[in-house]
Nucleic acid binder design. Structure first.
Lengths: 189, 189
DNA sequence: GTAAAACGTAGACTTTTGTCATCGTCAGGA
DNA sequence: TCCTGACGATGACAAAAGTCTACGTTTTAC
């Protein structure tokens, strides 16, 4: 299963770093069922996950306990609550599986060791952080100005796989739209 | 003027790093008037700015050329389009002054030299990036689920200075609210 | 296998938000 | 000084989004 992570890293760095096998051995393989909670807000985020198979949801609750989904992470991507993971502060977000998933998890200590064993991992971390940041910025700039209908069109254009793969409820919460409204608008396309 | 930046850095790092004076000398002082454009989307972002005095707006245009403001940066904070600055890719955002401002600018080469001269600057960069990321995440999680009225209340609670300091038009675009609606809701408080 | 729960769709209705036009005020430039 | 253009407020109206209920279908749990 670490094969997928190896490919991912080689792809990112352009070549296979020395000691990669050693690093890979530091990851714990987790076979998670659907709907399994990986992180609850208020707790400290202890792991960074590489999603080898499956799909994760990063979400918060609003004042009426409705979920709003900040991010949906599919296979071959990283997922964590980086702020909490890096600082040790309580996490502000929740993470759960939305499909049966295979995850490769690494904790802070392992992460630290990884940085020392393979100096290029500093670069990998920076890349993850920068990609996460870019993603957030993009999401703000795109979504603040778009109507609900245009947000749906956007999703169909740029992440069409999610439309077929995820429940309407989840998509609606990702798009910041009421689920009834989502159902109606989708029918109008 | 670099005095303000020195204080900022010492505050962040907890102590004054060696060679700080040398590093400070690499910054260019810019006295910018109100409404001056510092970055236009499509161009490469060449500088990271430290806002010593004044206020900057980071914004994009939607399909009807309305501005939507992703961030407002006041004195004692950093401002840039980090993705473009780091990668050399065209910027996706615009930056302008909304008040007469004093800025300390450093370009990529200076930034690079800074990293080498003062190793702790790697940490400063990471801090800037992490803070920017945390800020974006917070903005998404807060704003996606809040009504226009609640967004105004949020601003009054957490960044009250902006309410008095900025034009209604700018605040409305920061909150993602139509300016007429903003005017009405504000009157109802 | 069956009962219960969750899900997706739909209609009727309410609330929120956006649009447009108007008007008085104020600040900056000629 | 006067003109002009930007700004903020407001009313009337339109459009978008949210709420609630109901119902048939699918999925899940026991």
């Amino acid at each position: 299963m670490t094969e997928l992570l190896r490919n991912h890293i080689v792809k990112r760095l352009g070549s296979e770093p020395a000691n990669l096998e050693l690093v890979l051995s530091k990851f714990t393989v987790i076979a998670a069922k659907r709907n399994q909670t990986l992180l609850t807000q208020g707790e400290v985020c202890k792991y960074v996950y590489f999603v080898a198979e499956g799909c994760l949801q990063v979400y918060v609750y609003d004042s009426e306990m409705n979920e709003t989904t900040r991010d949906i992470v599919i296979e071959d991507n990283w997922c964590s609550e980086l702020i909490s993971f890096g600082s040790g502060q309580p996490a502000s977000e929740n993470i759960r599986t939305v499909e049966p998933s295979t995850l490769l998890a690494i904790d802070r200590k392992g992460f630290q060791q990884m940085m020392e064993t393979v100096p290029q991992f500093d670069l990998v971390y920076k890349q993850i952080l920068e990609a996460s940041y870019a993603n957030s910025v993009y999401r703000i700039n795109t979504f603040v100005s778009l109507s609900a209908l245009d947000r749906i069109k956007w999703l169909m254009q740029y992440r069409p796989m999610l439309m077929t793969r995820l429940s309407s409820k989840l998509i609606a919460s990702y798009l910041g739209i009421n689920k009834d409204v989502f159902s109606r608008l989708k029918a109008k396309l």
